[in-house]
Design a protein around this nucleic acid. Structure first.
Length: 471
RNA sequence: GCCCGCAUCGUCUAGCGGUUAGGACAUCACCCUUUCAAGGUGGUAACCGGGGUUCGACUCCCCGUGCGGGUACCA
């Protein structure tokens, strides 16, 4: 199996487009086949410089390596369509010779008026083939330098194919327009370029978003005219935003790379994407990339569009963070805890790990431990705790820490529990005093571990400052 | 307007004629607990509507409805 991801360089990749790439990548890897990355930049107008670099970075970040494509070389180099123009023109000639395509010099204004008229009469809007019947004149016009486009001559009859995800799909060819294949500037349209490249590059399975279903008959017509064996088509459903509309840059769909800065890990993103429209058929839903490769098959993709729920990503992100290898986590945290040493992060990880939804959470979680100054807290002692209990807890803690009990966390914990009980206070509530004293907040990483991290001196400093506030 | 696709809890989904309609997220309750989390247990919550087909429909067919997409010298 050979699959490809063929984005156009019109900006960063969003969740929906990357999911399509993921499906293609997984299908290829699962079958032991190869995955091709191809840049479809046949529209110079929409080209946004830097997009290709973004695409490459995104795929690399998620671990979706391609076997052939930009920065990779391969037997079908180059993998950028704007560099393959002559190839498309050659096949366009073939289509003309075979009577499957014809030149058209109709002006845009005429086409617009024609469609307007058709719409008014409840007719489907298609090219009326005016130029098809006057090819000699058109040839003369072209010779004089008049701009022209090459159109596919859509054959009569019906076009059908067995979509891997949807089953049989049938179109009546009379509803399908004579698609422009070559623009007046000599560039191919998507419709010509994909077909030529997918065939030349031996793509066996075209996995693309379902917005392409209506144009698949056009592509099939080209395959047929050129006597090429068409690939399998798998049209994956769209990913919708919370508004129920298809994700798009226009509507603020987020650049997938942004998720990295927000603290999402690749494993979680890939897992969440896979679950949007695909299911394993078992009740397991947490998978690593490798586990997805083992289980993924195209036929288990659900045909209905899916609404992306960021809460699911959050959950999966926490799960994958908790499962991450410690050293990997220590390294991943570097970005979110700038200025910290490897060693510091190693000591922090046990306290942070189970409390992070995103890696970015490490910042506020670790702040009380990394700041040099003891945090302030207006509401002290915390409500629900008698001042007498607060004093007793702090005194006991100060004595114990001063006596070196931070070396024995379990004993210290036991000592503090007893102190709370002796004062008829709920252990949880009594401890809150300590949290506020040490972390500046009634919640956070485990307070005894936090004190151990800070060291006796700094811990005592904060405890005494809090004690002093109580008088 | 014309064409196409889709339709199970709020969300992602399992289901492929006979099930107490299952799981996950979210949500609620409880347990555990040094706080917060994590974890555990349990609860609330779904087959878009109408016709068929069938002994029997979530499941198959048709029609509606809703949603999505296409309808470009954009992809």
């Amino acid at each position: 199996m050979r699959t490809r991801f063929a984005p156009s360089p019109t900006g960063p990749l969003h969740f929906g487009s990357v999911r399509t790439a993921l499906f293609g990548w997984l299908a290829a890897r699962h079958s032991g086949g190869s995955f091709v990355l191809r840049i479809e930049d046949t529209d110079q107008e929409r080209y946004i410089p830097g997009s290709e670099a973004l695409i490459v970075e995104t795929l690399n970040w998620l671990g979706l390596e391609w076997d052939e494509g930009p920065e990779k070389d391969g037997p079908h180099d180059p993998y950028v369509q704007s560099l393959r123009i002559e190839l498309y023109q050659e096949w366009a000639d073939q289509l003309v010779q075979r009577g499957a395509a014809y030149w058209c010099t109709c002006a845009p204004a005429r086409l617009a008026a024609m469609r307007e008229e058709q719409r008014r009469h409840s007719q489907p809007t298609r090219y009326d083939r005016r130029c098809l019947g006057r090819q000699d004149e058109v040839a003369a016009e072209r010779a004089q330098g008049q701009p022209a486009v090459l159109r596919l001559r859509m054959p009569d009859g019906t076009t059908e194919w067995d979509d891997v995800i949807r089953g049989r799909v049938v179109f009546d060819n009379k509803d399908i327009d004579d698609q422009v294949l070559l623009k007046s500037d000599g560039f191919p349209t998507y419709h010509l370029a994909v077909v030529v490249d997918d065939h030349v590059m031996d793509i066996t399975h075209v996995i693309r978003s379902d917005e392409w279903i209506p144009s698949t008959p056009k592509h099939l017509a080209v395959y047929q005219a050129l006597e090429w064996v068409p690939p399998y088509f798998a049209h994956v459903p769209a990913v919708l935003g919370p508004d129920g509309l298809k994700l798009s840059k226009r509507r603020g769909a987020r650049n997938v790379l942004d998720y990295g800065e927000l603290g999402y890990v690749p494993a979680a993103i890939v897992n969440a994407m896979a679950l949007l429209g695909w299911s394993s058929g078992t009740e397991a839903e947490v998978f690593t990339l490798q586990e997805l490769v083992e289980r993924f098959t195209l036929d288990r993709i659900h045909a209905a569009p899916a609404v992306f729920d960021p809460r699911r990503l959050d959950d999966l992100n926490g799960v994958h963070i908790r499962r991450m290898d410690t050293e990997d986590l220590v390294h991943a945290l570097e970005f979110h805890l700038p200025g910290t040493s490897l060693e510091t992060r190693r000591r922090l990880v046990p306290m942070l790990r189970e409390r992070m939804v995103t890696l970015a959470d490490a910042k506020h979680l670790a702040a009380p431990l990394l700041d040099g100054v003891a945090p302030d807290q207006a509401d002290f002692p915390p409500k629900g705790v008698e001042p007498a209990v607060a004093r007793a807890m702090l005194d006991a803690c100060i004595d114990a820490v001063a006596a070196g009990m931070l070396e024995h966390e379990d004993d210290l914990l036991e000592r503090l529990r007893e102190t709370a009980k002796q004062h008829a206070a709920k252990v949880g509530a009594a401890f809150r005093v300590l949290y506020v004293a040490v972390l500046g907040e009634p919640s956070g990483v485990p307070v005894i571990q936090a004190m151990a991290f800070l060291g006796s001196d700094r811990a005592l400093e904060r405890l005494r400052a809090a004690r002093a506030r109580l008088g």
